[in-house]
C-alpha cells in the first residue's frame, strides 16, 4: 500500500517542478558576493547590535499594545496621582505635582525594563534564539539589541511623561544640563535593570510568569519607597526599607537633579539617601558588572525546547 503512495507522490511532484527549478537557481544564487565571514572586529559587533536593535524597534512599531502601554499609562499615572492625591498629600515648600513626577518617572522606567525579561522568554519559546545561536554573529548582540529596545521604549515614555508633567504644572527648577543628567540617570538605571530582567527571562523561560512576577515584586518595590509619599510619613519598618530601597535612591537623585526637592525638606539618614546620585551610579555599575557577563554566559548555552 505504501509503495503505491510513494509512486503517487512521485507523479504529483512533476506539477511542482517549475518552483523547484527556481529554488535550485536561488540556491546557486546570484546575489552573494562571498561566503559568510566569522565575526572578529568591533565593526561586526556594532553591526550585529544594530541589526538586533532594529528588530526590536520594528516590534514597537508593529505591536500597538507596547506603544499604548508605554505612552498612555504614564499619562494616566501623571493625571491620576496629581489630581487625586495633590489635595490629600501636602509637601511643605513645594507642590505634590513637583514631588510626584520623579516617582512616576522612576516607576515607569523600572517597569519598562521588564520587557527584556518577557521578550527573551518569548524568543526562547518561539525558537528564534536557536536561529540566532547558529548564525556567525556576536554572542552578545541579541541581548544588546533587546536592552536597547527597552531603552528606546523608556526614552519614549520619558518624553511623553515630561510633556504631560509640564502641562499639569511640573517644572525643572535646576539648570538645563542638570535636567538632562536627571533624565540620563533614570534611563541608565533602567537600562542596567533590563540586563537583570533579561537574565531572569532566560532563566524562567515563560513570558507570562515574568510579567506576573515582575508585577508582584516591582509594585511593592516602587511603592515602599519615597516615590509617591515622603518616606518620613511611612510606618517605621517600611520607612527603613524605603530608605535603603534602590528605587528611593533613584527617585531622590532625580528630584535633586530636576530641582524638585523643596528647600529644608528632611533627608533620610541612610547613606543611600544622603548621596543618592552616587548610590544610583554604584547600583548601575554592579548590575551591569554582574549581569552582562551572566547574561552572555547564559545565552551561549541556552536552547529552546
Amino acid at each position: 500500500m505504501s509503495g503505491q503512495r510513494t509512486e503517487s507522490t512521485g507523479s504529483t511532484d512533476s506539477t511542482h517542478s517549475p518552483a523547484a527549478t527556481e529554488v535550485t537557481e536561488a540556491v546557486v544564487g546570484t546575489g552573494l558576493p562571498n561566503a559568510a565571514s566569522i565575526p572578529t572586529s568591533v565593526g561586526t559587533w556594532i553591526s550585529d547590535g544594530w541589526i538586533t536593535t532594529r528588530r526590536n524597534l520594528i516590534k514597537i512599531k508593529r505591536v500597538p499594545d507596547i506603544l499604548v502601554f508605554t505612552t498612555l499609562q504614564p499619562i494616566m499615572f501623571v493625571l491620576l496621582f496629581t489630581y487625586i492625591y495633590s489635595g490629600v498629600i501636602t509637601i511643605p515648600g513645594s507642590s505634590y505635582t513637583e514631588f510626584i513626577m520623579a516617582g512616576i518617572f522612576a516607576q515607569t522606567v523600572v517597569f519598562g525594563s521588564t520587557y527584556s525579561g518577557s521578550a527573551m522568554a518569548q524568543d526562547l519559546k518561539d525558537g528564534i534564539i536557536d536561529r540566532f545561536r547558529t548564525l556567525p554573529m556576536s554572542p552578545s548582540a541579541v541581548l544588546i539589541g533587546r536592552t536597547n529596545g527597552d531603552l528606546c521604549i523608556n526614552a519614549l515614555s520619558m518624553v511623553v511623561m515630561m510633556l504631560t508633567g509640564l502641562i499639569v504644572g511640573w517644572r525643572i527648577n535646576s539648570s538645563f544640563w542638570e535636567g538632562v543628567a536627571g533624565v540620563a540617570l533614570l534611563l541608565l538605571f533602567a537600562y542596567a535593570f533590563s540586563w537583570v530582567m533579561a537574565f531572569v527571562g532566560m532563566s524562567v523561560r515563560s513570558p507570562e510568569v515574568i510579567n506576573n512576577v515582575a508585577f508582584l515584586i516591582l509594585f511593592p518595590l516602587t511603592f515602599i519607597s519615597n516615590a509617591f509619599v515622603p518616606a518620613e510619613t511611612l510606618p517605621p519598618v517600611l520607612q527603613t526599607i524605603a530608605e535603603y530601597n534602590p528605587v528611593s535612591a533613584l527617585v531622590q537623585a532625580a528630584r535633586e537633579l530636576f530641582g524638585n526637592v523643596p528647600p529644608g525638606a528632611p533627608v533620610g539618614d541612610a547613606w543611600t539617601q544622603q548621596y543618592p546620585i552616587a548610590t544610583v551610579l554604584i547600583g548601575v555599575a554592579v548590575m551591569l558588572g554582574v549581569f552582562v557577563p551572566l547574561c552572555i554566559r547564559k545565552f551561549v548555552r541556552i536552547s529552546s525546547h
Partner: peptide, 23 residues
C-alpha cells in the same frame, strides 16, 4: 519549529539573517 520573528515581515526576517551572516 520555524525560527522566525513573528513581528517582522517575511522579507525583513530574511534580510536580518543575511545581515547577521555579515553579507
Amino acid at each position: 519549529y520555524a525560527a522566525v520573528d513573528e513581528n517582522l515581515t517575511g522579507f525583513e526576517n530574511l534580510e536580518m539573517v543575511g545581515r547577521l551572516y555579515h553579507l
